[in-house]
Design a protein around this nucleic acid. Structure first.
Lengths: 139, 139
DNA sequence: TTATTTGCAAATCTTTTGCATGAGG
DNA sequence: CCTCATGCAAAAGATTTGCAAATAA
């Protein structure tokens, strides 16, 4: 039973359990937004028994502690989770293979301020998704 | 039993039923992205008995015929539907009252082409959501 | 030791589907 | 008439929850 993330859990005030460690490892391995089910299966495939409800609970806890983020894509029923990268990013979503690709850079410029002024809406953050076909699927 | 949308249904090859008419009326009244449940309740409140599964089926049909669009917001489990406006639009979502406001105008410019070039990704369309606080809630 | 975490099963919520009945053209 | 649409109830998929047992600190 490894405890690679012991220090991190300590810092954020969470007990260092084998299940939390395993879920964190899975998120590191998968390095893309994944469903709770996918994270559960990946964990099981790496010989860490866990129950699906525990995965959900751990993911919720991680979201609260801001170490992962939660997202929902258009016309997709499940919620996706990925490690927080603490940098501004957007996503490309392949309509064919459903792959999600993170990209940095942002075209918004001072658009948020324009919107704030024009619509009397105080912008906190934004999400931009570009849907299309990835290199492999456009062939 | 009114049939205000008879001509439209005829044109797109759908039978003109009281339920379809009622759902379309509800979408016109609500003029914002709403859940199937909300559309169902609005329809019932306007004295048109309908079953929730029929609402889902009608909404699916309308999506196929391109007279409405389907969307999912971040961290929200339910799918939302609204009339197609056939113009490019984005949405402001109030984090407090959950209101969704449609806006026109787009800050992307030639960003899609840049992404296509840089990431070898063929962009089909995009979604932009600005989260924050609306005029009523920022007070 | 004690509060926290986990596993299991059951509950919940949203959406879909099978099938018999009903209605539009 | 005959096909398509609807209602109902049941199924399905995703997520949450209650509770007793297990475990970290």
């Amino acid at each position: 039973m490894r405890h690679c993330h012991q220090k991190m859990f300590e810092e954020i005030g969470l007990k260092n359990t084998a299940q939390r460690d395993a879920v964190y490892h899975a998120l590191e391995r998968l390095h893309a937004p994944k469903t709770a089910e996918e994270i559960y299966l990946d964990t099981m495939h790496h010989n860490q028994d866990i129950s699906l409800s525990t995965v959900y609970r751990i993911l919720e806890t991680f979201v609260e502690k801001n170490i992962i983020v939660k997202m929902t894509l258009a016309n997709q029923t499940s919620v996706l989770y990925e490690l927080s990268h603490h940098e501004h990013e957007h996503h490309l979503i392949c309509l064919s293979c459903k792959k999600v690709i993170r990209i940095t850079g942002c075209p918004l410029g001072n658009y948020e301020e324009e919107v704030a002024k024009k619509h009397h809406f105080q912008v906190d953050h934004h999400q931009l998704y570009l849907y299309g076909y990835c290199e492999d699927c456009r062939k």
